[in-house]
Design a protein around this nucleic acid. Structure first.
Ligand code: MN
Ligand code: MN
Ligand code: ZN
Ligand code: ZN
Lengths: 147, 147
DNA sequence: GTGGTAGTCAACAGTCGTTGTTATTTAACA
DNA sequence: TGTTAAATAACAACGACTGTTGACTACCAC
């Protein structure tokens, strides 16, 4: 519950109409504490409301992101992911299966560096990504072909 | 000069034929101490060798990356960038113009955290991105329309 | 209620970055 | 110089995303 408000409340409070499409997309996001792709959400949405258009999913996600209700992150796995977890954290990204997991590493604590003052650059946001292999994929790689 | 060897030397030492296309692409990369996109390189290449195919640029970049001679980084600006600087560093990414700049912040020093041990994940690589506005873009935003 | 108006939507074509296929050409080496 | 496996240009196709358009839907003034 980001900002203590549900996604639908945030939509309404910002003068956006609460259409059935938006309502459904908000529900799907709130029930998903992962990092779904746009296509994940589209598939879940069409299962309930077959007329839902992919464009509407994109548009609604950009609206929610514009409100600061969600974030759209790109970890280099092709297509962005929907980030429902607004608390500061970092990501583990599996280079084999593309899974994205949260780690409680606050970038503001680990990457707030004075050396940046020397650059003509206004830092607004810090991001830390740990790339490697998730347990499942590392396990699979370790198993030989048997005999 | 990564590994003390030129890119063409690394190609040859790994049994790859030294074609004029590969030679040109290597030169372009070594003369470019920025973070060119694939299209940047393609345009520069066709200026010299008009028959060069975009596919060949991609293929050659993946070969060089496979050898560890360059890195291909994705900072979420659409399409990856060619990273010629193999020393450990982090990036400033302008959200307005997409420029990517190096900062001498070694991720291994600032993001090598014991909390990661608790996760079933083999970290291979750490990455820190600072997002914001470059000096030029920040300046432009500050200027009002004048009268 | 009727008409106006702004917001929203599905459908669908188009863009951009990237990859697959294949027939032709070529670098490397005998 | 001939042989051969590797590399290339050409081009179609793909996935992720965006632009356009015309229909539909509150919402409001009268
Ligand atoms: Mn997350
Ligand atoms: Mn760099
Ligand atoms: Zn994995
Ligand atoms: Zn900029």
């Amino acid at each position: 519950m980001p900002h203590g408000q549900s996604l639908v409340e945030q939509l309404r409070d910002n003068g956006l109409k609460l259409t059935p499409q938006r309502h459904l997309i908000c529900q799907l996001i709130e029930n998903n504490h992962d990092h779904p792709t746009v296509d994940d959400l589209y598939e879940q949405a069409t299962a309930v409301m077959p007329s839902m258009s992919l464009k509407t999913v994109y548009t609604t996600l950009y609206e929610l992101a514009g409100l600061g209700a969600i974030r759209l992150v790109n970890v280099g796995t092709g297509g962005f992911r929907v980030e429902c977890n607004l608390s500061p954290h970092s990501h583990l990204v599996c280079r084999s299966c593309g899974k994205v997991m949260d780690v409680p590493v606050d970038p503001a604590e680990h990457a707030d560096l004075s050396v940046l003052k020397e650059y003509d650059f206004e830092v607004e946001q810090r991001e830390i990504i740990f790339r490697g292999l998730c347990g499942e994929c590392a396990g699979r790689a370790g198993e030989g072909p048997g005999a």
